[in-house]
Design a protein around this nucleic acid. Structure first.
Lengths: 191, 191
DNA sequence: CATCATATTGAACATGTATTCAATCTCTTC
DNA sequence: GAAGAGATTGAATACATGTTCAATATGATG
């Protein structure tokens, strides 16, 4: 490809990127509605991976997510909305637990998934798994992820205790026993 | 700051970045051992946030994580190792559930946390929360995160069913009932 | 105050990358 | 197969960014 070509067709390199963003967004949407028509809540990302051009497309997604392209941001919002619908269905079927805030829960889960995608290089170091690679390589990630998603990491007692501290009364005012409610900004290492 | 200055002191702009990476890594390590000396498993990230220069430092971390700086990668590996230790302790104290693979679980949790940090711009859109901002703004993220971390999102029945499908027998060979184990590459929307 | 080492500057230089544009190629259409 | 529209090229240009280097400022030490 010659440099002049992209200008002729897209006006500028930036406009090409916008077109690409739009294209991946469209592809993922399409893939998503495909799997919706097929069987209930098949993950479109997983389905994408089986596509021939899935992994490179995911790689592009991973790069684009961090620079806040408007089209990808929109896509994310749609994916959250879809996930809320799926999960409501899952709840009705007795598969998923109810949530205090289904939208927030779906958003957090999507952020985590996408975050792992963006950090695939780090995931490779930490887990020895290429998140952008073949589906069968993915178990090293899926297994611990499912463990957490399935049961959580905390015992019921510990959860009750912490859940009280994060109650809906926004300001850290009431209880008085614990002055600074800095229990853990990232949910990683509350121990 | 004049351009020549950074060359004089660091040799090149790239070397300055390396020095910065080293510096944030050192700061976080220090912060971490501080909170270890103080009370058990206080989250160093949360503590960082209370520092005056915490948020900008986290912003730098978020940017650096995606380009795979060696020092930050090392830091992540250390944080995982530390998290494993913390979580083993938490398990002994009856706060955390045991895991089939504690290291993998810690790695996944760290990846998710850091991923959310990296995607703070998207988090702001989806949750209306600035992950790099003041700690009191964080509840909108912490609440759903804790919900998931605490109890998981799946009912025990659903978990048992899926856990069987991801068993330790690597290849998707045995059971025969379900041919393609593409249950969900991202744990987001299995419904 | 002289001297020296170090910090600091800014203009020149080098390099990489985006864009312009005139020329050429490749089809389709009549 | 001539004409023309759109595709494609590559060299020239513009611009941004990292680096070099000689000159100057600053602050310490004798």
């Amino acid at each position: 490809m010659s440099p002049g070509l992209v200008i002729h067709h897209f006006g500028s390199k930036d406009d090409l990127r916008v077109a690409c963003d739009r294209h991946v967004a469209a592809l993922i949407r399409e893939q998503k509605s495909d799997s919706m028509r097929a069987g209930a809540g098949l993950d479109p990302m997983a389905a994408l991976r089986t596509y021939s051009d899935g992994p490179p497309l995911l790689a592009y997604l991973a790069r684009t997510l961090v620079d806040g392209s408007p089209h990808v941001s929109e896509l994310l919002e749609e994916l959250v909305a879809d996930a809320v619908a799926y999960m409501a269905e899952g709840e009705a079927n007795g598969l998923l637990r109810p949530s205090d805030d289904p939208h927030a829960r779906a958003a957090v889960l999507l952020l985590w998934s996408m975050g792992a995608l963006v950090l695939h290089e780090q995931a490779a170091r930490l887990l020895g798994v290429d998140l952008l690679g073949a589906p069968d390589q993915l178990l090293g990630y899926l297994r611990p992820a499912l463990e957490v998603m399935g049961q959580g990491v905390m015992t019921p007692d510990a959860y009750d205790q912490l859940a009280g501290a994060v109650r809906t009364d926004d300001a850290p005012a009431a209880t008085g026993a614990e002055p600074t409610p800095t229990h853990g900004a990232t949910p990683t290492q509350e121990a």
